[in-house]
Amino acid sequence: MRRLDRIIADASKQNWVDLYAPEGLQPYMKLSRLDRPIGTWLLLLPCLWSIALAAPTGGFPNLWLFILFGIGALVMRGAGCTLNDITDRNFDGQVERTKKRPIPSGQVSLLQAFLWLGFQCLIGFLILLQFNTFAIMLGAASLILVAIYPFAKRFTYWPQFFLGLAFNYGALLGWTAVKGDLGIAPVIMYLGGIAWTLGYDTIYAHQDKEDDVLIGVKSTALKFGESTRSWLIGFYSVIFIALILSGYVAGLTVPFYIVMAGAGAQLAWQIKNLDIDNPDICLLLFKSNKIFGLIVLAAIILGKFTLFG
């Protein structure tokens, strides 16, 4: 199969997996979505926000924790995507965007996919063991959410809610890895993050809505339909307000609020440019949430310092 014929629909034509990775490893990397790194960013960013929020006043966040959570986000997002592909193997071949995934295209057997899943979970477990006892217990509990999400689209129009529960768990875990306990600030951040995921993944789901109707799975894109923009305004208002509140509770300084204005502008740009019938626009807006998340991270880090030193 030629390289261009192997590229999955929503991956960049210049993604590094198809360009440079050894051909025998490519199907496993694609099971982990290494050809589409945006999901890893969206899983990692709430972790980084929380670690930065827990940093001491006048200090930078713990770089070693950034590295550990980066590796953990990479492998656990990969594990979640592998599990998703295993459970969706009978659906993916019927959807244009997913028919080239490794399992429905025959590049990986079901047994090989399960072995790859186990390998990634093992790495994630070893990363988790580097944290304090409370963080280890909290992290282990997240596996319940990871396991539920792939099945949610079968019984509810709100699978994005379950994705939000899992994808924003790092807002709790990052703080706990620093502090050894939980506080109100990361809880507010976590609840806001769920709304953020409901927003950006609804945009993403609009790419598949016709196929979803045909194969009988559910999503918020189908639930909201033409009202999506109104729902998006609501979801994005919640994440913005939640981040402001968590920063206030954590005692962040004026620079946090100044930079957060830029984050709010990025969300407003997404809402303004939404076109639910244009898959290319939907994918662009979805991926732009990495920019939003990095602006928020910069705001939190700067908010640990006073404006005039």
Rank of each mutant, 00 (worst) to 15 (best):
Ile8Tyr: 06
Ser12Trp: 14
Trp16Arg: 10
Val17Ala: 03
Asp18Arg: 14
Gly24Pro: 11
Tyr28Trp: 12
Leu31Arg: 06
Arg36Asp: 09
Gly39Gln: 04
Leu45Asp: 05
Trp49His: 00
Ala52Lys: 03
Ala55Gly: 08
Trp64Lys: 14
Phe66Arg: 02
Ile71His: 09
Ala73Pro: 10
Cys81His: 01
Asn84Gly: 09
Gly93Ile: 08
Val95Met: 00
Val95Ile: 00
Lys99His: 11
Lys99Glu: 10
Pro102Ala: 12
Ile103Gln: 02
Ser105Met: 05
Val108Trp: 02
Leu110Ser: 13
Gly118His: 03
Ile127Asn: 02
Leu128Gly: 01
Thr133Glu: 15
Ala140Leu: 12
Phe151Tyr: 12
Phe161Trp: 10
Leu163Phe: 15
Gly164His: 01
Gly164Ala: 04
Gly170Met: 10
Leu172Met: 07
Leu173Gly: 00
Gly180Cys: 10
Asp181Pro: 14
Ile184Met: 13
Ala185Glu: 00
Met189Glu: 08
Ala195Pro: 00
Trp196Thr: 05
Trp196Gln: 07
Trp196His: 05
Gly199Arg: 11
Gly199Val: 08
Thr202Ile: 05
Lys209Ile: 11
Lys209Leu: 12
Asp211Lys: 09
Gly216Cys: 06
Lys218Asp: 06
Ser219Arg: 09
Thr220Pro: 00
Thr220Cys: 05
Leu222Lys: 01
Lys223Gln: 11
Ser227Gly: 06
Ser227Asn: 07
Ser227Asp: 05
Thr228Gln: 07
Arg229Gln: 14
Gly234Arg: 09
Phe235Arg: 00
Phe235Tyr: 07
Tyr236Asp: 04
Ser237Cys: 06
Val238Ile: 05
Phe240Ser: 00
Ala242Tyr: 06
Ile244Asn: 03
Ser246Gly: 07
Val249Gln: 07
Thr253Leu: 15
Tyr257Trp: 00
Met260Ala: 01
Gly264Lys: 04
Trp269Arg: 09
Asn273Lys: 08
Asn273Glu: 07
Leu285Lys: 00
Asn289Leu: 07
Ile295Thr: 03
Ala299Val: 01
Leu307Val: 13
